[in-house]
Amino acid sequence: MREELVVKVNFFVEDMLFFRFIGCATVAKTLYLQLQNEPGIDVSWKSFSNHADIVHYHTFGPIAGLNRRMSRGKKILTAHSTPRINMGNIALARAINKRYPKIYRRFDHIITISRPCHDEVTAMIPEMPVTMIPNGVNRDFFRRDEEKRAAFREYYGIPDEQEVVLTVAQLTPRKGLYDFLALSRIFPDKKFVWIGGFPYGALSKDYGKIKHLKLRCGENVLFPGNVNDIIKPYSAADVFFMPSFAETFGLVILEALSCGLPVIARDIPEFHDIYGKNILYFSDREDARALIEDRTALNHCAAAARDFTSQFDLKDIAARHVRLYRELVE
Rank of each mutant, 00 (worst) to 15 (best):
E4Y: 03
L5V: 11
V6K: 10
V7R: 05
V9R: 00
N10A: 11
R20L: 04
G23I: 01
A25E: 03
T26A: 13
V27Y: 09
K29Y: 09
Q36R: 15
E38G: 01
S47V: 10
N50S: 15
A52P: 09
G61Q: 04
G61P: 02
A64M: 01
L66A: 15
G73V: 07
P83C: 06
A95V: 11
I96P: 02
K98V: 15
R99S: 15
Y100P: 08
K102L: 14
I110C: 10
I111A: 09
I113M: 12
I113W: 11
P129K: 08
M132V: 05
I133C: 12
R139I: 13
F141W: 05
F142G: 06
E147V: 13
E163L: 14
V165D: 06
V168M: 13
A169I: 04
A169W: 01
L171T: 01
R174Y: 04
K175T: 09
L177S: 08
Y178T: 02
D179Q: 13
L181C: 03
L183Q: 05
I186K: 15
K190Q: 10
K191S: 11
I195W: 11
G196A: 10
G201Q: 01
L203G: 03
L203M: 13
S204V: 05
H212Y: 14
L213H: 09
K214G: 12
C217E: 14
P224Q: 06
N226P: 04
N228Y: 03
K232N: 03
S235H: 04
V239R: 02
F245K: 14
T248K: 09
I253N: 15
L254D: 03
L257K: 11
G260Y: 00
F271R: 02
F271T: 02
H272E: 10
H272P: 05
D273S: 15
G276L: 06
S283W: 00
D287E: 10
A297I: 00
L298W: 01
R306V: 00
S310G: 06
V322K: 05
L324M: 12
